[in-house]
Design a protein around this nucleic acid. Structure first.
Length: 314
RNA sequence: GGUCGAGUAGCUCAGUCGGCAGAGCACACGCCUGAAAAGCGUGGGGUCACCGGAUCGACGCCGGUCUCGACCA
């Protein structure tokens, strides 16, 4: 017996990405189930929280028993968790998968988290006490004052953001003042797209069809007991990030008595639709992504393409 | 049948004394480096219910018609 000649280039990792409700999990599952050495890595900012299963459309236990899944259920809903935590966990998972001679399939809905992996982003540290000062200064002096300061310390970073975007201005100042080097020195930013050893496929739906799928899926989540799931979370502390998850935020409002269930459901659907559009906009400017147009069944449309890529990218 | 109120952007509604038609949401487009299912910016969109009248000029005033709502019979 002889093996195929090893490629000169390094093997590429497959990425399946797309907006919420695009069917990327089903496609990934179909691909991975056909290969014993495949493991799925979730690239999702909300599926990392334990106990948030229905609303985040986390893969079923049956699927997870059949194919190993990584980067799910990393922390409790009350824990702080952010980009760098995800990047660490995902890099570790990829190394482990590689170590046992397996291959990863990334399933990505959170664009920034994906970029941290594919583009090996250097994520600056955090300086909480400095951050608190800056937040207070925003209140006292206004965002523009902080933006002017940033413009002196790091003109490149300041030029890249609106002067009234408090979140970005404060973060850039935090990093520049706290770290002793300009925010912009941590990398080229996300608007450059160098070649990377990942083959990325995006699932693209006609927007009205996706909107209908979102509405149907929200109702299916409710039938599956989403309200009870949120209720059970409401007893324990929920982190700032976890509590803003779509479906959870609105149902927490409903449970607190500030709106009717019908209004909460309407809001969930609208905001999920808007989120899906934002995901599309994030992904579609990345020229490295190859798009698969889907009309009805995502698995039928995408699996042959992915199977071919799986075979040739090894 | 009568009285009163309402009719303005896809939706909910502002619009002062008659002088270029407004907001919020929705929608479209763009941005994004430790909250990213978050945050920020830009934009398109109107037969002011309809018909007529007075006026240099009407969403606004006058007359009529239609629709919806409340009340009275």
């Amino acid at each position: 017996a002889h093996r195929r000649a090893r490629r000169v280039t390094t093997a590429s990792t497959l990425v399946i990405l797309g907006p919420t409700a695009s069917g990327k999990s089903d496609v990934a599952m179909a691909l991975a189930a056909a290969h014993d050495d495949a493991e799925i890595v979730a690239v999702d900012a909300m599926q990392v929280y334990r106990g948030m299963d229905i609303g985040t459309a986390k893969p079923s236990h049956a699927d997870r028993a059949r194919v190993p899944h990584r980067c799910l259920d990393l922390v409790d809903a009350g824990d702080e968790f952010a980009l760098a935590d995800y990047a660490d966990a995902a890099r570790r998972a990829l190394a482990e998968i590689d170590g046992r001679g397996h291959r990863a399939v990334l399933v990505a809905g959170t664009g920034l988290y994906l970029r941290s992996i594919t583009d090996r982003m250097e994520v600056p540290g955090r300086w909480p006490e400095l951050r608190a000062e800056l937040d207070a200064r925003v209140e006292a002096e206004g965002v523009e004052a902080l933006h002017r300061q940033l413009a002196e310390l790091d003109p490149i970073a300041a030029g890249k953001m609106e002067s009234n975007n408090a979140r970005r201005v404060v973060r850039a100042l935090e990093v520049t003042l706290g770290g002793g080097r300009p925010f912009s020195s941590y990398g080229p930013g996300i608007d450059t797209y160098p070649p990377v050893p990942f083959i990325q496929f995006g699932l693209q739906w006609p927007r009205p069809v996706l909107a209908m799928r979102i509405s149907e899926r929200v109702h299916r989540m409710l039938d599956a007991g989403l309200v009870a799931e949120v209720e059970s979370l409401a007893g324990a502390p929920i982190s700032r990030t976890a509590r803003q998850a779509l479906g959870y935020k609105e149902l927490l409002d409903f449970l607190a008595g500030s709106c009717t269930l019908e209004a909460a459901i309407e809001t969930i659907i609208t905001r999920t639709r808007q989120f899906a559009v934002r995901q599309e906009r994030w992904f579609r400017r990345d020229p490295r992504i190859r798009w698969i147009t889907i009309e009805d069944d995502p698995v039928t449309a995408a699996l042959p393409v992915l199977e071919r890529a799986w075979q040739t990218s090894n």
